[in-house]
């Protein structure tokens, strides 16, 4: 389910800008570090850290948009908006921003693994008929489902959601209709990054282990889910992410766990060969 939340934030940004935000993994990491700082440095109760995580995610998303994307899309003519060079530049700039965030966290925490205080960890064991899960895992599932539903409501029941859908459908047309593109793009980064930061938070609460590199694997899996889901489809990304998670778990029963890492990539290869448009992708 974690993959799903991260993949949706990732896909949302791609859907609007047709640009990959590789700094999205670091948003996930920042969500985890915010809860660490709230718990250890500020000694805040858990309920009061949650809004801080949302704020940190929103600010990080806004910062990434300003530093990594806005500069490359300052021209709003049709040629620039459709420019492949701009897309490639933003891919690299987001990658660079991700490295910068990671290295800053590494400098502060010296690359060391951090542990959340036990009182904050959701580690009660739940026995579901012989299958053990922790309360943290249950919270991951519930929070993920709630966030996915909330996102759907936001996209289909609010004016900003309508604007996001309009921009993702036809940016130039939306611009001519009077929609403020910059405002929509910022909203997309903020929403996507809040999803990523909250995902980082719940995973940290479930496992209690935090490190600057924790977002790296997740963002790669989110990218794979986005491609399998059909690049621009939010339900597609969510379903693909769940599919990857389930496939990894099932593979873990039959294969040595070190091999389960390849499951997502095997699925990706299979989809690229037999279903290149993904689960819900538009035919190109």
């Amino acid at each position: 389910m974690t993959y799903a939340v991260v993949a949706i934030g990732f896909t949302l940004i791609y859907r609007v800008l047709t640009a990959v935000n590789f700094a999205h993994g670091e948003v996930y990491t920042i969500g985890a570090f915010t809860i660490l700082i709230g718990a250890t440095t500020l000694n805040l109760p858990l309920w009061s850290i949650v809004p801080l995580v949302v704020l940190a995610g929103a600010l990080t998303g806004y910062g990434i948009e300003l530093a990594g994307f806005r500069l490359f899309r300052r021209f709003t003519d049709e040629a620039s908006l459709k420019s492949r060079a701009v897309r490639e530049a933003t891919l690299l700039s987001s990658l660079a921003l991700g490295i910068v965030i990671r290295e800053i966290l590494d400098l502060i925490y010296k690359g060391d693994w951090q542990s959340l205080p036990e009182t904050y960890q959701l580690s009660t064991s739940l026995d579901l008929g012989g299958i053990y899960i922790s309360s943290g895992e249950a919270v991951i599932a519930v929070v993920s489902i709630v966030m996915l539903i909330a996102l759907q409501l936001l996209l289909h029941r609010t004016s900003i959601g309508l604007a996001i859908r309009a921009v993702s459908s036809n940016m130039i047309g939306a611009q001519f209709s009077g929609i403020n593109i910059n405002r929509v793009v910022i909203a997309v980064f903020v929403i996507g990054s809040v999803l990523g930061a909250v995902a980082g938070m719940v995973v940290s609460l479930a496992y209690g282990a935090i490190q600057s590199y924790m977002g790296l694997t997740v963002v790669i899996k989110a990218f794979v889910a986005m491609v399998i889901g059909g690049l621009t489809s939010l339900p597609g990304a969510a379903i693909a992410a769940v599919m990857i998670g389930v496939a990894e778990s099932v593979a873990g029963i039959f294969l040595p766990s070190a091999w389960t890492e390849m499951v997502a990539y095997m699925l990706l290869i299979v989809f690229l060969i037999f279903l290149p448009n993904g689960l819900f992708g538009r035919r190109r």
Partner: peptide
């Protein structure tokens, strides 16, 4: 005997095995 993924966080499955 099993070797686990160094980047994994959830080891419950392998521990159950």
């Amino acid at each position: 005997e099993e070797f686990v993924r160094p980047d994994a966080q959830d080891f419950r499955q392998v521990l159950q095995k």
